[in-house]
């Protein structure tokens, strides 16, 4: 018998067979029973220790920090929303520019363009069937998607950094 076994017994950490063995031993050795009583008393002392109090206004400070974090998060979220609009508009504009450039490349600039009174008839179906046009469109769309993904990841990283900081 020793103190550790008695503590484990008092803490109810012993398996059933060992617990019964300790109980039988204690019945025959009153001096160890007294020691058990002392251990129980020490346990009561530990469990009755008062909790520590943080500085006054702790809860208010936490709530204020939380409110600040949330408003900051909302600001970032709003900015992200605006970014999506900007990127979408830019993408559409980019598509138009690319289409125009491709048209010029494919069809060439008419020699007498200045004197032409009528708008040229554009064969959109024919244009889209041209490999150069298709590749160009895929390229632009891929770049646009990559840019959007990059922006999204950038903002995720920023949010993570903010979370870590807090």
């Amino acid at each position: 018998m020793n103190d550790d076994v008695l503590w484990d017994y008092a803490d109810q950490l012993l398996p059933e067979t060992e617990r019964l063995r300790v109980e039988a031993y204690l019945e025959q050795h009153p001096e160890w029973k007294e020691r058990l009583a002392a251990i129980e008393s020490e346990k009561r002392m530990l469990s009755s220790m008062p909790l520590e109090k943080p500085r006054a206004g702790f809860a208010d400070r936490v709530m204020a920090a939380w409110a600040a974090e949330q408003s900051h998060g909302r600001a970032i979220s709003t900015d992200r929303g605006k970014d999506w609009i900007v990127w979408a508009v830019s993408g559409i504009f980019g598509l138009f520019v690319c289409a125009a450039v491709l048209m010029i490349i494919v069809q060439g600039v008419p020699q007498d363009a200045v004197n032409l009174p009528e708008m040229p008839v554009v064969d959109w179906g024919g244009m889209l069937r041209q490999p150069a046009m298709r590749i160009g469109l895929y390229l632009v769309l891929t770049l646009l998607v990559l840019k959007l993904v990059e922006k999204y990841l950038q903002q995720r990283r920023m949010l993570d950094r903010l979370n870590m900081h807090h």
Binding site: L51, E52, K53, P54, F58, A59, V62, M63
Partner: peptide
């Protein structure tokens, strides 16, 4: 927060 502040702080 108020319920757990002392436990967390301790």
């Amino acid at each position: 927060v108020k319920r757990y502040e002392q436990y967390v702080y301790t």
